[in-house]
């Protein structure tokens, strides 16, 4: 109940004293703040090594490459992505990442970050799905992950704040909540089977709890360098991995089930500062 009341306040009040909602913070500073304020979270404290590596997070290497790609004239139309509106106006990247998914007038639907990025690369730059620039979604070498890391980094330390003003935004967030609890597949799992309790472990992995703000903020803070994969991964890549482990049907990129799940999970981290990019197991 206390938590609900907090969430109703302006987001700036819910985050630690150091952070203002709109203030950029170094990802490692955000992590350190979480660690200090939540000494008992097994999830946040699970990897000493990752915490030590965080100042030299390999994901940061992609930021510069992503910036170059963003401002370069590219694609058949030979234009940069400065005309791309992620919700705060064309080319406005500060705080854009933490305020997604959102409803876009020009497409008439709610789009998550990756969907929007791909939309711009196709509509503005003229790429098609056959071009590696948008076709290749995963791995440090992909344009999508470089751009994602650069753009997300511009929102580091800002509070998750996906808008819910448009009825479609609310509808997708609410459907995402249903999807989070929807059982299915060969093992009868829903997302809460593994993320519905505090401090549980599946084999060696400590699981983040969806109802614990700081844990969930770190959990949804992708892009992140995933140490076990030695690559930077996206929110969509994480969903695909969990859905695969759940023995559901394979989920596709740029689809509304992804968008709805992200609408719900970013909403669950509302008010907490984002770690962008993060470093995970």
């Amino acid at each position: 109940m206390f938590k609900k009341a907090l969430l109703a306040l302006p987001v700036a009040m819910a985050v630690g004293a150091a952070a203002q909602a709109g203030e950029w913070q170094d990802p490692n500073d955000v992590l350190q703040q979480f660690l200090q304020e939540n000494p008992d979270s097994a999830y946040l404290h699970q990897s000493e090594m990752n915490i030590m590596m965080m100042p030299d997070n390999p994901a940061l290497w992609l930021v510069d490459e992503g910036e170059e790609l963003f401002y370069a004239k590219r694609g058949p139309n030979n234009v940069s992505l400065e005309g791309c509106d992620f919700g705060k106006g064309p080319g406005e990247l500060d705080g854009a990442y933490v305020e997604l998914p959102r409803y876009f007038e020009d497409t008439g639907k709610v789009m998550d970050f990756e969907m929007r990025l791909v939309h711009c690369m196709k509509e503005l730059q003229g790429f098609t799905s056959d071009d590696a620039a948008v076709g290749q979604r995963h791995g440090n070498g992909s344009d999508i992950m470089k751009l994602t890391t650069f753009i997300a980094h511009q929102s580091s330390g800002m509070a998750w704040n996906p808008p819910l003003d448009h009825p479609q935004e609310q509808a997708m967030r609410d459907a995402g909540e249903k999807l989070f609890y929807r059982r299915g597949g060969a093992m009868d799992f829903n997302c809460a089977s593994c993320h519905g309790d505090v401090g549980k472990q599946i084999r060696a992995s400590v699981l983040p709890h969806v109802g614990t703000g700081p844990e969930w903020s770190k959990a949804v803070s992708w892009p992140a360098h995933r140490a076990g994969h030695d690559n930077v991964r996206s929110q969509n890549h994480r969903i695909r991995g969990c859905v695969w482990q759940m023995r559901h049907a394979g989920i596709k990129a740029d689809t509304p089930v992804n968008t709805a799940l992200i609408s719900y999970w970013n909403d669950q981290a509302r008010g907490e500062p984002a770690i962008l990019p993060d470093l995970k197991r």
Binding site: Q168, E177, R182, T255, P256
Partner: peptide, 29 residues
């Protein structure tokens, strides 16, 4: 109009009708 459905209906619709999954794949069972 997704806003005309309740959340349960929309969730079912998203799962089954929006081509979000590789439904054509064979399941091992």
């Amino acid at each position: 109009d997704i806003t005309a459905m309740n959340a349960d209906e929309l969730a079912e619709y998203l799962v089954l009708e929006t081509d979000s999954y590789r439904f054509e794949q064979e399941a091992q069972e």
